[in-house]
């Protein structure tokens, strides 16, 4: 008798499209990021229930509502600790965190640094538009000096922070930057970020067409230059930091830095070493497992 094997259809980008349509302004850079993320998930080939997308507060933080995975819309700036907990609870999940520059580099700055230091295995997609959009246009931590916004009517007097260089220094093991105008490129960067075991930052220029008249699509289109074309070696930390500092007529995008030698948090946590994801384990742990853990820790 012929055996009928159930064949799981390979998911396509369409399978990841959520039932709710984004409420972003028409022309917003975040649309490109969402499409690219759907494609990256499809490319990775896992099923919808294997992904967990977590957002903070802000336009881009609404993304988990628009993608067909498990999702959580959390608090302003607090995505990374919650994602860390979710990963500890089930380290089989592919955890994706989405948010903006204000959410991640401003109010969530402390968590940004420390989650990288811990090398938590997740993909962190920051839609960096150099402005607070949902609160209708204040200067953000990545707004350039001199930029006029609602909160800086005479020009921003503060220097912007540099997320790429900062991430490399803080201990992220995959650091990339892209431009929402090039969906194929950011699809690849996000796909690789999910494949990477450890903390992966993909900072994406995602222009706010409503409130940021400086950092527009044409602004980036003219300036972005792929590191692949420059001939950069992502295993060279020094060179990565140097490229991260470049900002001018040319702005490098692509993979700045990758370190595959450091184990992610879930591999170092003794409790997670045995028995698979804790959410799926049998009640408690066996005596043998317990003894093994103690032995390893002594």
């Amino acid at each position: 008798m012929a055996k009928h094997e159930s064949i799981k259809a390979v998911p396509t980008a369409k399978d990841f499209r959520g039932s709710v349509s984004p409420d972003w302004c028409p022309g917003c850079g975040d649309f490109g990021v969402l499409r690219a993320l759907e494609m990256a998930c499809a490319k990775l080939g896992r099923e919808n229930h294997d992904y967990l997308t977590i957002g903070g507060i802000g336009c881009s933080s609404n993304l988990p509502g628009y993608i067909n995975t498990y999702g959580m819309h959390t608090l302003h700036g607090r995505t990374l600790p919650i994602a860390t907990g979710a990963k500890l609870g089930n380290h089989d999940l592919t955890v994706i965190v989405t948010g903006g520059d204000g959410d991640g580099y401003g109010i969530g700055g402390n968590h940004f640094v420390h989650t990288m230091r811990r090398n938590v295995d997740l993909l962190y997609v920051v839609m960096n538009n150099q402005i607070y959009g949902l609160t209708i246009g204040q200067a953000s931590p990545t707004s350039r000096m001199g930029m006029k916004t609602k909160s800086t009517p005479f020009g921003n007097v503060e220097a912007p922070l540099n997320p790429v260089a900062m991430a490399i220094i803080a201990g992220a093991t995959y650091v990339a930057r892209g431009f929402s105008g090039d969906t194929r490129h950011i699809t690849e960067l996000m796909y690789q970020g999910m494949e990477h075991k450890g903390f992966a930052l993909v900072d994406i220029f995602s222009p706010c067409i409503t409130f940021n008249k400086d950092n527009t699509f044409p602004f980036f289109k003219q300036r972005v230059k792929k590191l692949e074309e420059i001939g950069h070696d992502p295993s060279d930390m020094q060179a990565a930091i140097e490229q991260g500092m470049v900002w001018g007529d040319e702005i490098p995008v692509g993979l700045f830095y990758q370190d595959t030698s450091r184990a992610p948090l879930d591999e170092l946590e003794p409790v997670l070493g045995e028995g698979g994801p804790i959410a799926h384990r049998e009640l408690g742990i066996t005596k043998e497992q317990g003894d093994a853990i103690i032995k390893r820790m002594m």
């Binding site: 600790p81 919650i82 860390t84 907990g85 990963k87 089930n90 402390n110 804790i278 799926h280």
Partner: peptide
């Protein structure tokens, strides 16, 4: 965790995952 907020955050995330 790095602060009080992160320490409740990690617990909430873990709870979502079934801990």
């Amino acid at each position: 965790m790095e602060d009080e907020i992160a320490s409740v955050g990690v617990a909430i995330g873990a709870a979502f995952s079934g801990a």
